[in-house]
Nucleic acid binder design. Structure first.
Length: 340
RNA sequence: GGAGGGGUGGGUGAGUGGUUAAAGCCACCAGACUGUAAAUCUGGCGUCCGGAAGGGCUUCGCAGGUUCGAAUCCUGCCCCCUCCA
């Protein structure tokens, strides 16, 4: 199936993280072409078709510069979540490594990134729409405390981790408990994470970033964001629901139904995107030693990047990639190799 | 020139004698997060001291006044808006 001398013992994965609009896409493209990489999207909204402008999805032209994955895989009324991301991304990483190419995970969805990296073991309880609707109705009747109390008696450990007002989380915890009453939901990290990875974080002065966001939205409007939302509506998707609850889609939807003016919609979208940035920095902390932060705009077409004093991406990759030099236990990886 | 309306914290906007450092919303800052995560939720947000409880100081156009007490009442001044000339 595979020759032992070609077995990949350790292969690196590159991750590019950071807030929206810092320039992750263009850095990813440079690195992909420099290091023979394939890009895996880790953005919860770019997975959707018909949502191109508003999600700042890489353009067709950009997508031609390197293989891209997890883009345009679903329609906006289909559900995408952490579990799906993990299973797809994990498979893709293996495949790409199998081709002896470099997987480059790029995205601003912190939960996805860390789950992948740390090997989170999410409870295998799929969403249950009926259950959720029922609990939501209960909460409306009796208030959030009522639901929270149910969780307190069902799974006190989990309850202690949640704010009683965060209905969505409380209901999910109950849902999990409901489905697997025998074993309470507990955080686990038993799956394999990414052992040999380099996380590059892109950051920028906050004020400057907000300015970039505002400018980029103005540009999106010129490029036809309003039309994009209209088209989505025409296809039967509802702004404000599902992935269309994100910045731009929700606000423009309110504009199209006459609730707010266009100017208002644009301004609100800018502000909402600023908020998004703040939340993203909660996942990607500047003090996190795992992330190699690069400040400011990274020039296009870099041939190599200095990650920290004396270390470059090139060094990192050659240090970690040990093709066929060690003959240890590589059974798991060999399986993946077989798929190529 | 005349008749009205109005000036409140970064913005908007409540508040018409004490329980008001002044609601709510926005902006901004910080945080939580293990199957919706660009979502959901929480805290902070005049200023100084304090770990905190709490305390001090300065705020509601400006200047005076009434009152035990004023963003709130009175007087004058400045500015803005609408309408009539």
């Amino acid at each position: 199936m595979n020759s032992p001398t070609l077995a990949v013992i350790t292969t690196p994965v590159l991750l590019i993280v950071g807030p929206t609009a810092v320039g992750k896409t263009s850095l990813a493209l440079s690195l992909a072409s420099r290091f023979d990489g394939e890009i895996i999207n880790a953005d919860s909204r770019q997975v959707y078709r018909h949502m191109d402008i508003g999600t700042a999805k890489p353009s067709p032209h950009e997508q031609q510069q390197a293989p891209h994955h997890l883009l345009d895989i679903l329609d906006p009324d289909q559900n995408f979540d952490l579990a799906k991301f993990l299973s797809l991304a994990r498979d893709l990483i293996s495949e790409i490594q199998g081709r002896e190419r470099l997987p480059i995970v790029v995205g601003g969805t912190g939960q996805y990134i860390w789950a992948l990296l740390e090997g989170w073991n999410v409870p295998e309880v799929p969403p249950d729409a009926e259950f959720r609707a029922a609990k939501l109705a209960e909460a409306e009747q009796h208030g959030p405390e009522f639901i929270y109390q149910q969780l307190q008696s069902a799974d006190p450990t989990r309850a202690a981790q949640l704010d009683f007002r965060n209905l969505r989380r409380v209901i999910r915890a109950l849902e999990v408990h409901h489905a697997q009453a025998s074993q309470p939901q507990t955080a686990g990290q038993t799956s394999e994470g990414l052992a040999h990875s380099l996380i590059i974080g892109l950051t920028m002065d906050r004020t400057q970033l907000y300015q970039r966001i505002d400018d980029r939205l103005d540009q999106m409007m010129i490029e036809g964001l309003e039309e994009e939302v209209r088209a989505l509506t025409a296809l039967g998707y509802v702004p404000g629901e599902g992935p269309l609850a994100g910045p731009g889609y929700r606000e423009l939807g309110e504009y199209l139904t006459g609730i707010i003016s266009l100017d208002e919609a644009v301004q609100r979208t800018k502000f909402q995107t600023h908020r998004l940035v703040r939340r993203q920095y909660n996942w990607f902390k500047l003090v996190d030693p795992r992330i190699k932060w690069l400040a400011g705009a990274v020039p296009d077409g870099v041939s190599d990047l200095e990650i920290e004093a004396g270390q470059t991406v090139q060094n990192f990759l050659s240090d970690r990639a040990c093709y066929g030099t060690i003959s240890g236990d590589s059974s798991q990886i060999s399986d993946d190799m077989g798929t190529r």
